[in-house]
């Protein structure tokens, strides 16, 4: 009889303590989320505010949203064109990186050969090389070949990071496919290409898709090469966005609308591969 109330009070204090932990952890979590997402929120809301609201001090939190800036951006056409250019360049660079990188990753995962260590070294080193080192000579080469302001120049230079990224992430993936699967298929009379395309490629597809998405994000976000290698025709979205900063009087609304349009696909992709982003950025050193 006398035990029951005591147990109940113990249970109640434990409940209170849990509630307290939940509350303070929830509060800190909310603070962190606000801190890390505020710039994104600010960008999107500025894109949706009237110019008068943008300059308001103190900032207006509740406002009547307008799509005026998006309409301006659409009608002026250069942003839309740059987004199309970005799409062409990033998609092509990604597809080529996967087409060229995935078979190489398979061979690296399965075979021993001379020069393999050097190839590894090159692939990892690439993660460390400042793009300006490649941009200077690439500009001069592209100029001599009359490839400036053409999509192909950018697509080719993006392979310098696209292929290594795909190779790196896919080697892990192909290593996870048991060798016995290959051997069984070989016994059944399949040649190496059939073993690769019919068996390994489908099995490694999840990893290949992740590496493709990461290569796409990297190509989509790239500024320096695009700045150097394009003028008007092949200009990509980041260059277009950076151009808002030149000239007199910054047009904040259209600028933030452009920023929103650029960031939107990246956000979707990033959330899709959120578990693998760090692995990609550290070239697999941190899982």
């Amino acid at each position: 009889m006398s035990v029951a109330p005591q147990a109940r009070s113990v249970r109640r204090t434990r409940f209170n303590r849990h509630l307290f932990t939940h509350l303070w952890q929830g509060a800190v979590a909310l603070l962190l989320i606000v801190a890390f997402l505020l710039p994104v929120y600010w960008m999107v809301t500025t894109a949706l505010k009237t110019t008068a609201d943008t300059f308001a001090v103190p900032p207006v939190l509740l406002f009547q949203p307008t799509f005026e800036h998006f309409r301006i951006v659409y009608e002026e056409g250069s942003v839309a064109k740059s987004l199309v250019n970005s799409l062409i360049v990033a998609t092509s660079a990604t597809l080529l990186s996967v087409l060229i990188g995935a078979p190489a990753a398979y061979v690296l995962a399965r075979f021993q050969f001379r020069g393999k260590a050097d190839l590894w070294f090159w692939i990892i080193t690439n993660r460390f090389i400042s793009p300006i080192v490649v941009a200077l000579p690439f500009f001069l080469i592209a100029r001599d070949l009359r490839l400036l302001d053409k999509h192909i120049a950018l697509i080719l230079v993006y392979l310098t990071f696209g292929i290594p990224l795909v190779v790196w992430l896919c080697v892990d993936q192909f290593r996870a496919v048991p060798r016995e699967v290959d051997e069984a298929a070989t016994v059944d009379g399949a040649n190496l290409w059939q073993v690769f395309f019919r068996i390994n490629l489908p099995l490694a597809m999840p990893g290949i898709v992740v590496s493709a998405i990461l290569a796409f994000i990297a190509s989509w976000n790239e500024l320096m090469f695009a700045l150097v290698l394009t003028r008007a025709e092949a200009r990509t979205a980041p260059v277009e966005a950076a151009n808002f900063m030149t000239g007199f009087g910054i047009r904040w609304g259209p600028m933030m609308a452009t920023g929103t349009l650029i960031v939107l696909p990246v956000l979707i992709f990033a959330l899709l591969v959120s578990r693998n982003l760090v692995r990609g950025l550290t070239m697999g050193a941190v899982k």
Partner: peptide, 15 residues
């Protein structure tokens, strides 16, 4: 937490 890392640095500069 992935969001800040992935956002186009050019746009980060603008914001």
């Amino acid at each position: 937490l992935v969001i800040p890392i992935a956002i186009t640095p050019t746009v980060v500069g603008l914001v």
